[in-house]
């Protein structure tokens, strides 16, 4: 293992799912540095990829083949024409949870530690939209984060804070976060 060049080990660690990848940080300093970076260096292992990345599903991985938990998603363009079909094989420890429905759309969320990713699917057209990337959330927020959906131009609302006075809104159309000052519950 010591003889294994960094680039090969990086490739291996990069193909792991998020959870095993985090566990691997404990293995040794070399592994940790590759996964989370050392000093000011950026991590060598791609960080976002481990959660959901199609090419990470390995053909020889019996464990995940056997669990056979996958979601099929379809992408549609504006005219309703199917442009792509995507199947997501999910780490069996990280199920997406259903957030709720709004305006006939179904909202799913995958919250993994300090990362959140969203999907919205339209059961009528079977179209799906996913958030552009995995959102990192800070330590303090991670525990208290409450997720919900609301009707605001088909946006996804993120409510946080004890009294829910602070509301951060994630707009699905633009993929941007914004803050609402007005308390929702009085």
């Amino acid at each position: 293992m010591e003889a294994l060049p960094d680039e090969v080990l990086t490739e291996i660690l990069g193909r792991l799912w998020k959870k095993p990848s985090c566990r691997c940080k404990c293995v040794s300093k070399r592994w940790r540095d590759l996964i989370s970076g050392s000093g000011g260096d950026k991590p060598k292992v791609p960080n976002s990829g481990c959660l959901i990345q199609k090419e990470n599903i390995s053909p020889t991985d019996e464990v995940y083949d056997a669990s056979n938990f996958s979601l099929r998603f379809f992408r549609f363009d504006e005219k309703g024409k199917m442009t792509a079909e995507e199947s997501l094989d999910l780490n069996k420890w990280v199920f997406p949870s259903m957030l709720g429905t709004c305006d006939g759309l179904l909202f799913y969320c995958l919250k993994t530690g300090k990362k959140v990713q969203f999907w919205v699917s339209d059961p009528v057209t079977k179209g799906i939209r996913s958030s552009p990337s995995v959102f990192p959330i800070s330590d303090q927020v991670a525990d208290r984060l409450r997720l919900g959906v609301g009707f605001r131009n088909r946006s996804l609302e993120i409510k946080k804070g004890k009294n829910r006075a602070a509301v951060a809104v994630f707009d699905f159309e633009t993929g941007e976060w914004s803050r609402r000052r007005r308390p929702v519950f009085r």
């Binding site: 293992m1 010591e2 090969v8 490739e11 291996i12 193909r15 792991l16 799912w17 095993p20 566990r23 691997c24 404990c26 293995v27 040794s28 300093k29 592994w31 390995s58 053909p59 020889t60 991985d61 019996e62 464990v63 995940y64």
Partner: peptide
């Protein structure tokens, strides 16, 4: 690499160290 990934996937750090003879330098 795929084989290695499948070997690591469900394991805990100590199991990985034992399997690949990695020295724990923490």
């Amino acid at each position: 690499v795929d084989k290695m990934v499948s070997m690591i996937q469900g394991k805990y750090p100590q199991e990985i160290r034992d399997m690949f003879n990695v020295v724990n330098d923490f």
